[in-house]
Amino acid sequence: MVRRAGIVAAVALCLLLSGCRPEAAGNASAPAPASPQPAATQPAAGVRLPPTGARFDYQLGGAYAPATGVAVVERDSTARPAAGRYNICYLNAFQTQPGELPAWKKRHPQLLLRHDGRLVTDPDWPDEVLLDTSSAAKRSALASVIGARIAHCAAAGFDAVEPDNLDSWTRSHQRLTADDNVRFAALLARRAHAAGLAIAQKNAGELGSRGRTEASLDFAVAEECQVYGECGDYTAVYGSHVIEIEYTDNGRAAFTRACAARGRIVSVLLRDRDVVPSDDRAYVSRWC
């Protein structure tokens, strides 16, 4: 299941085509104490993790000045980092970005996943085609393409990367496996760590500890884990190094419950589904 906003990445398209590197609210009630968590994640040498339990802002719908008290900001790779905050760079690493498909067809057609001769698309995001992680050779080639974007994030001044759609195997018509994607994630982690960046596991709680132990991912970004009863899948592996996002179109009860259960341990954010900028009337951003 995909539970994130789709962003058109002009900079990513530029990287894909030519390798260019462009220039780079209110609170809920106080939570109750949560149960003890596992030991803190140990990052790779030279890598800094996001502060635990800090106010987080998810700015994928467009960058804007963070609210007072926000310590961690996530923006698309096409945006600049927010000054004075811990910054996470969003990458669509397991599927094509909207608007990118012609470039992939031209430059890397062999890296697009096919089933019965047809491109495999995400049913919730039909303009996104799954990338083919099914062999070591293809994973290596993909790591070079996505690795250029990771390098861009580092050069732009981000502190971490969040490669989205780790769970793409679940919508691949059995053309991909969890093993394929974990192995590809490990290649991305190696590149992120070499660039001095932390790297997040995005969703895919069904992997258990494999994201951390096999792919060397450093922390988790989990969407709607309260709604789907998955939050323990992440805290069991990453302890307090979890960022949780709940969405307003599910109602606000899940956010309230999340704050009560984990609000003093992990970062919990309530956001509008389209993660619009703060000057949009639909904007919602709340913290425990």
Rank of each mutant, 00 (worst) to 15 (best):
T96H: 05
K202M: 06
T68H: 06
P43I: 04
L217S: 02
I199W: 02
G147I: 08
L13T: 11
H173N: 15
V2M: 11
L130A: 11
G205M: 03
E100R: 00
A204S: 13
S216V: 03
V120G: 08
A148W: 09
T170N: 08
E100M: 02
A236W: 01
G61D: 02
F184R: 07
D132F: 13
I265P: 01
T133C: 14
Q110W: 10
D279W: 14
G147D: 09
T68L: 09
L112G: 10
L176N: 04
A30H: 10
P43Y: 06
V47P: 04
V237G: 01
R149M: 06
C153R: 01
L13N: 13
A236R: 14
I245C: 05
S216C: 07
A25Q: 10
Y64A: 14
Y238G: 01
R191T: 12
C14E: 13
Q226R: 12
A192P: 03
R114K: 13
L176P: 06
A236P: 04
A204K: 00
I199E: 05
A222H: 00
P66S: 06
I150N: 05
I7H: 05
C153V: 06
L130R: 05
P43T: 06
G251S: 12
P163S: 11
V276G: 03
Q59I: 04
K202Q: 10
N165E: 08
G239W: 03
E100F: 00
D132W: 10
I150S: 02
E230R: 11
E223A: 04
L60Q: 04
L17T: 05
D122R: 09
G196T: 07
S172C: 07
S216K: 11
A83D: 14
E206R: 07
L13W: 04
A215C: 04
S35W: 03
A154H: 04
S134Q: 15
H193S: 05
S77L: 15
T213S: 09
Y238L: 04
A40F: 05
D233R: 09
R80I: 10
A151H: 14
A282C: 10
